[in-house]
């Protein structure tokens, strides 16, 4: 078992699942290669269902398969699923609560690096957050994507797994399970503030927390890996230990992690919140690191936002 990046991680996990569960099939929208799933198709040619470039049809074909007892994974670009086939996901998979798994690649500004706005998706989580029955997994690296794919079949219903470009930095050591409670504390430097991160900018947020520690600001950093979790009690408990929270996500600040944390804070423990992410802007083509810096995700800029947050209410 070896993989590099979120796409390969998906493919390896899918192949392992299909080896032990005959209900697993892969539905492709001319996306087999994009999903790095060629080896899967070679090993299980009868489980590889090619629909061609037709995401709407692909999602409904998957609904049909799921209604007949299969567990289809539909994998393609995040926006082609959540935008072009949004109604199909909502009405024909989520409403009847069918057991279809979705994997959306090129999610986020960094996930869609060098492809520009048409292939860069920072709205997927917001769209799905408003659809009942859908469980949203936001793994932060390849290892967590592998675990997320494995964890998804434990849920009898639709699951969306957010994946990236395949060039994400590895954070998690092998064998780290996908946190069922919906988050994992990765740094516990103190109670000055909580930083919640989600997705493939986690390496930058970790670097920022380390810088802040040296500057005397003691943050706790949590990787939030399930959005709109139906059992958020543990995360609420964590929030209650702080009076300031910063959210950092490679997504529009509306609808994703920032919105999720704001809602929990408003309803359970009002506090000062800053949200970092894309604010009223589209992305653009460029190298991942360059883009992340340009759109505010440098460790230094994250630190700057923390300083701003620390001033609030004082």
């Amino acid at each position: 078992m070896s993989y590099k990046g979120t796409r390969e991680a998906f493919s390896v996990a899918l192949t392992e699942l299909a080896t032990i569960d005959e209900r697993i099939v892969f539905v492709s929208s001319d996306s087999l290669k994009a999903m790095r799933a060629v080896a899967f198709a070679e090993k299980f040619p009868e489980k590889y269902i090619e629909c061609g470039i037709s995401e709407q049809g692909s999602v409904d074909v998957a609904a049909g398969l799921a209604a007949c007892g299969q567990i289809p994974f539909v994998g393609t670009y995040a926006g082609f699923l959540t935008m072009r086939a949004c109604e199909q996901m909502r009405t024909f998979v989520a409403y009847p609560n069918l057991n279809v798994k979705f994997v959306g690649i090129n999610a986020g500004l960094v996930g869609g690096e060098r492809e520009g706005v048409t292939h860069q998706f920072y709205e997927d989580l917001g769209i799905l957050s408003s659809i009942p029955n859908v469980t949203i997994f936001t793994p932060a690296d390849a290892q967590q994507t592998y675990e997320a794919v494995k964890a998804s079949i434990e849920i009898n219903g639709p699951v969306y797994i957010r994946a990236g470009s395949g060039r994400e930095e590895d954070i998690y050591p092998a064998g780290t399970p996908f946190a069922e409670e919906g988050f994992r504390v990765l740094r516990d430097y103190g109670k000055d503030l909580l930083i919640c991160a989600s997705g493939f900018i986690l390496n930058r947020v970790i670097a920022s927390a380390e810088l802040l520690q040296k500057e005397g600001i003691h943050a706790t950093l949590a990787d939030v890996n399930i959005l709109q979790n139906r059992s958020p009690e543990k995360l609420i408990e964590l929030l209650k230990k702080f009076d300031r929270v910063l959210t950092v996500e490679d997504h529009n600040v509306n609808g994703g992690l920032g919105s999720y944390i704001c809602t929990l804070a408003c309803e359970h423990h009002p506090m000062y919140v800053e949200r970092m992410g894309l604010k009223d802007t589209f992305g653009e083509s460029g190298g991942a690191e360059e883009l992340a810096d340009a759109y505010g995700f440098s460790p230094e800029n994250i630190g700057k936002q923390v300083h701003k947050l620390m001033e609030r209410g004082r």
């Binding site: 099939v25 269902i49 609904a63 049909g64 799921a66 007949c68």
Partner: peptide, 12 residues
């Protein structure tokens, strides 16, 4: 499209 998925499911 769902009927197509169902017909494909029959093969399994």
């Amino acid at each position: 499209s769902m009927a197509a998925g169902s017909a494909l499911g029959a093969r399994y």
